[in-house]
Amino acid sequence: MTSLSAQTPTSTGHPLAEAIVALAETPDDMPGIDARLQRVAQLAADRIAVVDYAAVAPRPGDGSCIVAASGELIDAVEEVSTAAPPAAMGPGTTMTWPHFRETAAGLGMRVVSVPLFTGGGAAIATLDLYSRDPDAMAALTAGVRAAHDPELPWPGDEGDMRALDAGAEELLTGYAEALSVRATIQLALAMLGRSMPGGPKDAYLRLRLHAAGEGVSLLRAATTVIEADLA
């Protein structure tokens, strides 16, 4: 089985993984979250070979998505869609597209959804990956499950499922690392919350202020809290 821990998601050359991990370390109230989500969508469309479109749907949302395309299907979608985007869309761009999920379903595309979250731990958006290739999407779905549970087989390892392309491996490596970041921050919040009347809410504010005051990330601040508690 491919080891997630052996991967290096935050190293140079893995921008999609880096973007997902960085989002998980970002305070909920940090300016520019929408731009970060837009970048994740564009990187997913550019780097995952089997993905034709990547869309970020905010939670809660109004049915609109931030959509990025790999390039080839833009004209095809505009020809058949009754909910076409309000302006021209070309490779390397993202745009808000109302009811894109319904449009993609009408084209017979499969979708795999990956939650995206910031430092508070709650999912703020969903990264929806669209493709016409059912086998590739089945492998990607299995990879998302394996990111949550390392005991599950990695796609391609047992020979009964297609292996992931390099971009999909990068996505899932980053997602698994982001889950680890979230678990670390949540553990620190639980430790802080034991002695705070406001519980998790006050604990998050305290951790956020500590990180800002020390000029470190939420992850680094959370690690410091855990180390102090265990000591």
Rank of each mutant, 00 (worst) to 15 (best):
A168K: 07
A212V: 08
Y175P: 08
Y175L: 09
L171R: 06
V21N: 13
V216Y: 07
L209M: 13
M196T: 02
A41C: 06
L37V: 06
L16K: 01
I20P: 07
A84L: 02
M95I: 05
I20M: 12
L172I: 11
T173I: 10
D149V: 07
L164Y: 04
P98N: 10
E79F: 08
R59F: 09
G167V: 04
G63N: 11
W97K: 02
M109R: 10
D133F: 02
V51H: 01
P155E: 13
P134E: 12
P31W: 07
R206K: 11
A87I: 05
A22M: 09
I20N: 06
G121E: 03
D160V: 07
E170L: 03
A49W: 03
D229C: 03
R36K: 15
A136F: 02
P60H: 13
I48Y: 08
F117L: 04
D62F: 09
S70L: 00
A55S: 15
L43D: 09
L187N: 10
G61P: 05
L192Y: 03
G121R: 01
G198T: 12
L192N: 04
A146H: 15
R162C: 04
L140C: 08
A76C: 03
G120Q: 03
V51Q: 01
T223A: 12
W97T: 01
T10L: 13
E79I: 06
L218I: 06
D135V: 03
G61L: 07
D128Y: 01
R101Q: 12
P200N: 04
I226P: 01
A57D: 13
S3W: 10
A104P: 07
V181A: 06
V225I: 12
L152N: 14
S180P: 01
A105Q: 14
A84S: 13
M191L: 14
L187I: 01
P134S: 10
L43K: 05
S11W: 08
T93N: 08
W154S: 12
A188M: 01
S180A: 14
T8C: 12
Q38A: 15
L207P: 00
D28C: 02
L23I: 05
S180D: 15
E214W: 09
I124H: 07
A188P: 01
H14P: 00
V50S: 11
V112W: 00
V51N: 03
D34Q: 14
D62T: 13
A41Y: 03
A35P: 01
G63L: 09
A212W: 06
G13L: 00
I226M: 10
T8R: 15
P98Y: 10
D29L: 04
A147R: 07
D52L: 01
E78T: 09
T94M: 04
A105L: 07
A55G: 12
A122H: 10
V216L: 06
A183Q: 12
D34E: 15
V112G: 00
D133E: 12
Y130M: 02
G143L: 05
T8H: 14
D133K: 03
V50W: 00
E79M: 09
G193C: 02
P27F: 07
R145Q: 15
A35Q: 15
S64F: 02
A68I: 00
L218P: 00
L107R: 02
W97L: 02
M196L: 15
L16F: 08
S113R: 11
T223R: 14
S217G: 15
